[in-house]
Design a protein around this nucleic acid. Structure first.
Length: 222
DNA sequence: TCATTAAATTGTT
DNA sequence: AACAATTTAATGA
């Protein structure tokens, strides 16, 4: 059992793919491991792969003109991203950083489009994913008051628990406070305090190396 | 299985 | 950034 087989087969979008489709997808997929802290790609780079996180945690971020770091999304194990850059055939608009050792599944451009043209199941997945992301961004804009540290932590956490984007994830996730701090753009100490407060408010439960969400809706719209 | 130790993670300052 | 406390993982009796 080559790990590559499992990778494609286990992917959420492969759920109702036919055997032939899976085989085709498998052939166009390579795996690559990035060490903790490594850049997967910089803004402006070309990365002609549709990318899935087989294991690990990736931050999608950019630096604003004012020089402030801004995180667009955190992608955990089981998440997929990059369809926008592939579809539009343009360089990445943001930086990709592996927050911990991360194993990525890279689906090449030709295979992506083959699936796009031939698999209804794949298309259903794509539409759902794009729609869900859209919803995330709209929610972000709607609640775009001055984002204090706690709010950023809460929002980034809620992203990681999106049941549509991560069908596999239950109500708990493995993430350290340091990693969450990197995602939210706050220091570890602040992340720690934010989590403690969120826990007091009954939204989450923080444990060692993992966090349980008790009220996802409240977390999203914090 | 238990004890010891090293490494990682967390709580505070 | 530094330090202590706590938890986990690894090792060997």
């Amino acid at each position: 059992m080559a790990p590559r087989d499992d990778l494609v087969r286990r992917a959420v979008w492969a759920g109702d793919l036919g055997e032939a489709e899976i085989e085709r997808a498998r052939k166009g997929t390579v795996e690559k491991v990035f060490p903790k802290g490594a850049y997967i790609c910089h803004r402006g780079d070309r990365l002609d792969y549709w990318t899935g996180v087989a294991q690990g945690l990736v931050k999608i971020s950019t630096i604003s003109q004012g020089g402030k770091a801004m995180t667009f999304a955190g992608i955990g194990t089981g998440g997929w991203f990059g369809e926008g850059s592939i579809l539009k055939d343009e360089p990445r608009q943001y930086d990709l950083v592996a927050l911990r050792e991360t194993r990525l599944a890279l689906v090449n451009r030709a295979t992506f489009f083959w699936l796009y043209e031939n698999s209804a199941a794949f298309n259903r997945f794509l539409v759902r994913q794009l729609n869900e992301r859209m919803g995330q961004f709209i929610a972000t804009i709607e609640h775009d008051r001055i984002l204090d540290a706690k709010a950023r932590v809460a929002r980034n956490l809620s992203w990681l628990f999106n049941p549509v984007l991560y069908p596999g994830a239950g109500s708990q996730i493995e993430i350290t406070q340091e990693e969450l701090g990197l995602l939210a753009g706050v220091s570890r100490a602040v992340a720690n305090r934010s989590l403690a407060e969120l826990e007091d408010e009954g939204l989450i439960r923080a444990e060692h190396r993992e966090i349980r969400v008790l009220d996802l809706a409240a977390l999203k719209t914090y």
